[in-house]
Design a protein around this nucleic acid. Structure first.
Length: 653
RNA sequence: GGGCGCGUAGCUCAGUUGGAUAGAGCACCGGCCUUCUAAGCCGGUGGUCGCAGGUUCGAAUCCUGCCGCGCCUACCA
């Protein structure tokens, strides 16, 4: 609705601009600071003041005159130092909201790949991983809401150092056989077992540096692909991947495909990329210095041409093995369909809605897998600490001559989740004097320092359950638990989304467990209340009207005719109408927090409406009909926005 | 040392890309449940936008220099 009107307004202004002043300029529309100023503001007069050498106010006045009437715009006035404020035709606008003119978001050509989660499959997921997954999943939902075709990838580093370290723990420290480990996997929370074991192994390396030879031995065994060590590696990684998927499913996060490092190795993805890199001279063999014997990428490729030349980046180690960055370059090439190779795929699990997760495999499979990869745009959701490595990957693409794809490789970076000092105290973690003075403490898997994702979710569910049970003692426990779970997950997703990407979250239980104020449950509560009005209406034996036939444009115009209460309703409708534009802007900015912020504001708007307009008690028939529709529209926009955030609307609260 | 980021109310954070009187939540103080659920609503207290310059009609926002903090700067990922 807005988008169409905005375009009309922009072209009308542009035309008037050339006609009157003989200049062309992009017309930016903004929301006025105060609702009383109108619905839209055009600040273009400020822009032109310098080049035209005229005061903004004068330009604005002349421009208003030149523009004349625009359909859908009721009035234009010059305000402040040169703002042009627009007031829309309320009746027409409201009728447009009731009967959308089929301007459904057009399908956007091409496929966007979003890679997120990417947790090392060697221990339980923690809050930092949750931020990644929720950020990625929400961005996917935003893109899809805008009409993009999106493929969600979750890369599994199942042959890396971290998995190897847990295998070291089982094999060398605990003397466990694959059968012993399989038995452990069958028990509950194998990922928690590995969490502790990983920390123990890391400590053991510290105390016995010579034991690092074990890691090399395991890595070798895992890469060979056979033998007991390889078997252990597979057992651990596969089991933990399944647990991670279950953890993320609790938060409503799903994936399309899991490309694994084991296949990148076995299907010789790296070998293909290596040949390409050598052939196009993107990397060279270092003969001297500390990187002698390695294949390296010169720092000039990814650091700009500054004098302060840093070290080159090692891509292939002197022992012939490839670094993670090397494999990532191969993977990135595959994502764009530039490698000339593909994985084989098999179904890993099927979600209850019928959607499947596919996983890469090195064995040929019967046909049936969708076509993965070959994206036209790639977003990699990876924390900001890896910016340097992501720069190297993009530089690799560029050095290979794939400039276009390099430009379409977006590092969707975000800051880490750290622990507040109070949170550490809650967890019983003792901090060094130095750490205690810091505003936050970094999570460390090696030290076993962190809040496990499932623990946090359990705690949230428990807290929410207490609230639900006390408010609705009449309901059965299973239903209470279902509602509590939706509230808990809504609270968690919102908590992780309300911060902008480059804000460090200093995690604090008290804040994360809050259900009041700017939280997910606040927004859910608004949606629940809106639905409740219709249920109550039906309880009273009244049907929900068919608004499209019952509400005429004239009735809308009457109900919105200027006046205190009507102005308020008009503002309410206008904030609800912004939903699509907000998602649009948030996609462009790459900032899911903007959608979260809007959801909260819309919930606030609803609560104001709820408080100021007792819908069911309204005596006037037309007024009541109109208020019911406003309520329905608010409910619709709230639910749509919540769904973009991946937050459910509980049956009651 | 170099690269990236941050510094806004007591606390945690927004700030629509340079615009109108700098906002929200929490905390604190005071009101509102016989009326669609108070996980709510209304009102109040609270600001040298780190500091100093500069750019211009106009700066929390852009530039320069300081101060403080964080992350990165591996033949780990």
């Amino acid at each position: 609705m807005f988008l169409q009107l905005e375009k009309q307004i922009q072209s009308a202004f542009r035309e008037a601009l050339t006609l009157r002043f003989g200049v062309d300029a992009e017309i930016v529309l903004e929301q006025p600071k105060q609702a009383s100023f109108g619905e839209m503001a055009v600040p273009v007069a400020f822009q032109l003041a310098r080049s035209l050498k005229q005061p903004p106010k004068k330009i604005a006045a002349e421009l208003v005159e030149a523009v004349g009437d625009i359909p859908g715009v009721a009035a234009m006035e010059v305000a402040g130092n040169g703002y042009i404020n627009l007031r829309l035709d309320r009746g027409a606008m409201a009728a447009g909201l009731l009967n959308p003119s089929g301007e459904a978001t057009a399908a956007i050509p091409g496929k966007t790949i979003v890679e997120h989660t990417n947790i090392n499959p060697n221990k339980a997921a923690h809050i930092g991983h949750l931020r990644n997954a929720v950020l990625g999943d929400t961005f996917v939902r935003m893109l899809r809401a805008r009409g993009n075709t999106v493929e969600v990838q979750n890369y599994i580093d199942n042959t890396g150092v971290q998995v190897a370290d847990v295998v070291v723990g089982f094999h060398f420290l605990e003397k466990k056989s694959p059968a012993d480990v399989a038995a452990l996997i069958a028990e509950r929370r194998f990922d928690y077992t590995c969490w502790d074991l990983y920390a123990r192994t890391s400590q053991y390396y510290k105390d016995h540096p010579e034991s690092l030879a074990w890691r090399a031995e395991v890595l070798h065994g895992v890469e060979a692909g056979s033998g007991e060590l390889a078997e252990l590696g597979h057992l651990v990684a596969d089991a933990i991947v399944n647990l991670h998927l279950a953890t993320m499913l609790r938060l409503n996060v799903q994936y399309d495909v899991l490309p694994r490092e084991s296949e990148i190795l076995h299907l010789k993805f790296w070998a293909a990329a290596f040949e390409l890199l050598k052939e196009r001279k993107a990397i060279y063999f270092e003969e001297e210095g500390k990187n002698a014997g390695c294949w390296v990428m010169p720092s000039s490729a990814f650091r700009g041409s500054d004098e302060a030349n840093e070290d080159s980046k090692v891509i292939v180690r002197s022992n012939g093995t490839v670094t993670y960055v090397g494999k990532d370059i191969a993977y990135q090439l595959w994502k764009f369909g530039l490698l000339g190779k593909d994985f084989f795929y098999r179904t890993l699990i099927e979600y209850t809605d019928g959607k499947k997760i596919w996983v890469s495999t090195d064995q040929e499979q019967p046909a049936g897998a969708p076509a993965f990869g070959r994206g036209s745009m790639v977003y990699n959701v990876i924390d900001t600490r890896q910016s340097y490595l992501q720069d190297v990957v993009v530089a690799g693409l560029r050095a290979l001559g794939f400039d276009d794809q390099a430009n379409k490789s977006i590092h969707f970076s975000y800051e880490m989740v750290a622990l507040s000092p109070r949170c550490c105290a809650d967890l019983g973690i003792e901090l060094s004097e130095e750490d205690a003075k810091r505003p936050y403490v970094e999570v460390s898997g090696r030290k076993g320092l962190g809040v496990k994702a499932d623990d946090l979710m359990d705690k949230l569910v428990e807290t929410a359950f207490g609230e639900v049970a006390s408010r609705h003692p009449e309901d059965n426990e299973a239903a209470q638990l279902a509602v509590a779970t939706e509230i808990a997950m809504g609270a968690l997703r919102y908590f992780l989304l309300k911060f902008t990407r480059n804000t460090v979250i200093a995690f604090d239980f008290q804040e994360a467990l809050s259900f009041v104020g700017e939280t997910g449950p606040y927004v859910q509560y608004a949606a629940v209340r809106a639905r409740k009005i219709f249920r109550k209406l039906e309880d009273r034996g009244e049907a929900v009207p068919d608004f499209r036939t019952a509400l005429t444009t004239e009735a809308m115009a009457r109900q919105l005719a200027p006046g205190d209460k009507n102005d308020e309703l008009w503002q309410i409708l206008m904030s609800a109408a912004r939903a699509d534009a907000v998602v649009d802007r948030a996609v462009a900015a790459g900032e899911p927090a903007q959608v979260a912020k809007y959801a909260f504001q819309l919930a606030q708007t609803f609560n104001i409406f709820y408080d100021a307009f007792p819908v069911l008690a309204e005596p006037d028939a037309e007024r009541k009909l109109f208020l019911l529709w406003v309520n329905q529209y608010l409910a619709l926009q709230l639910e749509r926005t919540l769904s973009v955030l991946g937050i459910a609307v509980p049956a009651y609260m």
